[in-house]
Design a protein around this nucleic acid. Structure first.
Length: 374
DNA sequence: AAAATTTGACCTGC
DNA sequence: GCAGGTCAAATTTT
């Protein structure tokens, strides 16, 4: 898993960035056709595109320089992958027909978020704005509650590899640990779905793909959203401190789908810099920091845990887990240096063996290469 | 009827 | 061998 993982991940990262660039180029084109667009719009779009291309170049160089970048040693890591055409871990067909082995779950970017729900009594499930489909549940040793396994609803249709694991905390029924694995490559429109799905069933928070004509997107609150990204690691602490005695105000009866106090990201923590507008960034849209106007209410009924009502932190690697090799972080640093974006921190949050693929929001451009999984 | 969930079995990594 | 993760048939819900 080590060999070439960095390079391979870098290539995937590169592909993602290029897809990103493609989307931005498209936007630029649209701007050009829109008589109302102004010079600054062009400039902004162009700068974004330039930045994205810069990233691509940086990543390409890093991959080029990476030891073992010869790839090809596709780990046929599991015998099962043969029959896994039906599973999400199946190999993915690259455009040229080459097989990008998906390394099972392990190679996927991984990050966690903690969050609280308003009412511990309900089978509340967080809505992060993406549609998930439950595919399994498992009792976990030492945990009181089973862990739920979810995958992107659009996996079959669009080959989206994103999955998440949801586990209710033993100590506080209001708290869930959500581990995200892989990133959305699907086109689903993720909005700030600040709602908890409180009904156990119908469950997996499937926000109706909202018409794009909604208020959100580029109003001031979006800035807050972006800030949420930047400070993602700090948020928990700050929230804890700032809201130490913040009592959860009543949001309403348990019957009401208790609104989530926040939405947490379904893409890896991604640090935007000032220049990157969050437009077209569903991830950003789903990532509302405390205090954002997106919050409908803090939770109640929850005996304090850390005193904060919205805890969404990105778990760094557990102690003992070293970053697999230096490659991912190096890559991150390279990219950071080259682009001003702080990718390195992303890598620090990611799984050890992460192939550092995709710190980016699922822009319009999932590589069409993903074959249907099921 | 289609889509989503449940659940036991199976597979993999440690 | 055990625990965690995934599959897929059966079941339930929409």
């Amino acid at each position: 898993m080590q060999d070439g993982a960095g390079a391979e991940g870098g290539i995937q990262l590169l592909l993602t960035i290029l897809a990103d660039a493609e989307e931005q180029a498209r936007q630029l084109g649209e701007l050009a056709e829109d008589p109302r667009s102004r010079a600054e719009h062009y400039r902004g779009a162009a700068r974004r595109l330039q930045g994205t291309l810069g990233k691509a170049v940086a990543v390409a160089k890093a991959v080029e320089a990476a030891p073992g970048s010869s790839r090809g040693t596709d780990r046929s890591d599991s015998p099962r992958s043969a029959d896994e055409s039906s599973g999400g871990t199946a190999a993915v067909e690259a455009p040229e027909g080459q097989i990008l082995c998906n390394k099972r779950r392990k190679g996927l970017p991984r990050w966690t978020a903690k969050f609280r729900v308003p009412d511990a009594n309900l089978e509340a499930t967080p809505d992060d704005g993406f549609s998930w489909r439950k595919y399994g549940q498992k009792d976990i040793l030492g945990a009181k509650f089973p862990r739920g396994y979810y995958r992107c609803t659009y996996r079959a249709a669009q080959g989206c590899p994103a999955t998440k694991q949801v586990q209710r905390s033993d100590t506080d029924l209001c708290v869930f640990d959500v581990t995200y694995l892989g990133e959305h490559t699907c086109h689903q429109k993720q909005r700030h779905a600040a709602a908890v799905t409180a009904h156990g069933r119908g469950g997996s928070q499937s926000p109706p793909p909202p018409p794009p004509s909604h208020h959100e997107q580029q109003d001031p609150s979006m800035q807050l959203v972006v800030m949420g990204f930047k400070d993602s690691l700090k948020v928990e602490t700050e929230a804890s401190l700032l809201h130490q005695d913040h009592d959860c105000y009543d949001h309403g009866p348990a019957s009401a789908p208790a609104a989530m106090p926040f939405s947490f990201p379904s893409v890896p923590p991604f640090h935007h810099h000032g220049g990157e507008a969050p437009d077209n960034n569903p991830a950003a849209a789903a990532f509302s920091p405390p205090g954002s106007s997106y919050f409908s209410a803090p939770p109640h009924h929850c005996p304090a845990v850390a005193g904060s009502y919205n805890v969404y932190d990105y778990e760094a690697r557990p102690p003992g887990a070293r970053m697999g090799g230096a490659q991912p972080s190096e890559l991150g640093e390279v990219v950071s240096r080259a682009t001003g974006l702080d990718y390195s921190s992303l890598y620090h949050h990611a799984e050890a063996e992460v192939d550092p693929h995709l710190p980016f929001p699922p822009f319009g451009g999932p590589s069409p290469s993903h074959g249907p999984y099921q």
